[in-house]
């Protein structure tokens, strides 16, 4: 369609503006800093250490931490840095909450499925990347996918005219990644199954009454673990 290139030029930050274009995956623990701009704004760190993946919001110190050491029985924690607490979810907890866990989606910033759903388009901004575009579940996507990292370098969504854009900016260094995981490991932990029986714990009472931070700020997947825009059950 001829109109498309023109529309792309009108977007506030074009997908072609890529300063961060890694050609290989780090060998040690690593992470990516994403910047969200447009209709929503914020910063998010995606942290990786072997079978662990976490999404960490440094503004509110909330993290969503997945462990896939046993892929059939993944473990998930919501980490609350300010309170130095974490809530652990076992597989049974996730199932009772209707969460469908996909390791591939978690590790790919919930973007792996988009590669099948969207159309591959030409790009020349990053040698180790592929560009995709299209509509999926009433959301228009534009994505620059790093073949080296198996992660999006940019992920842009348009919903009812509102554009949000995730932009990978830089690596998080290995020591910082290790530090986060070590810190969270030491936090006081509560099983999700026990939250309901601990209404007198001020922290947990707040969780019960106000709800957990369900969508987090990366909004890569919803409260049931489904990738953004996919509301099937």
């Amino acid at each position: 369609m001829k109109l498309l290139p023109m529309l792309l030029l009108l977007l506030p930050t074009a997908a072609s503006a890529v300063d961060f274009c890694p050609n290989s995956m780090p060998t040690q623990n690593w992470g990516i800093q994403y910047q969200l701009s447009g209709a929503h704004q914020g910063t998010l760190l995606l942290l990786r250490q072997q079978a662990q993946t976490a999404f960490y919001n440094p503004q509110n110190q909330v993290a969503e931490w997945w462990r896939f050491d046993n892929p059939q029985h993944p473990q998930f924690s919501r980490v609350f840095g300010e309170a130095k607490r974490r809530i652990d979810y076992y597989m049974g907890d996730l199932r009772t909450l209707g969460v469908q866990v996909s390791q591939a989606e978690i590790e790919s910033f919930a973007a792996n499925h988009l590669r099948q759903a969207l159309t591959k388009v030409p790009q020349s901004d990053c040698a180790e990347a592929e560009a995709y575009e299209g509509d999926y579940h009433q959301v228009h996507y534009r994505m620059l996918w790093s073949t080296a990292l198996q992660l999006p370098l940019t992920l842009e969504t348009t919903v009812q005219g509102k554009v949000s854009r995730w932009q990978a900016q830089q690596f998080v260094n290995s020591a910082d990644v290790t530090g986060h995981f070590q810190q969270w490991q030491a936090y006081k932990r509560t099983d999700f199954a026990d939250v309901g029986d601990n209404e007198q714990d001020p922290f947990l009472a707040k969780m019960i009454n106000q709800g957990f931070v369900e969508h987090s700020e990366h909004a890569a997947y919803d409260s049931r673990g489904n990738p953004l825009g996919n509301h099937s059950h």
Partner: peptide, 18 residues
């Protein structure tokens, strides 16, 4: 009837109460 289905509720709380 699926084992993963969450029943609807009236008051939103992260954990249903006794």
């Amino acid at each position: 009837t699926d084992v993963d289905f969450l029943q609807q509720a009236q008051v939103p709380l992260s954990s249903e109460t006794h």
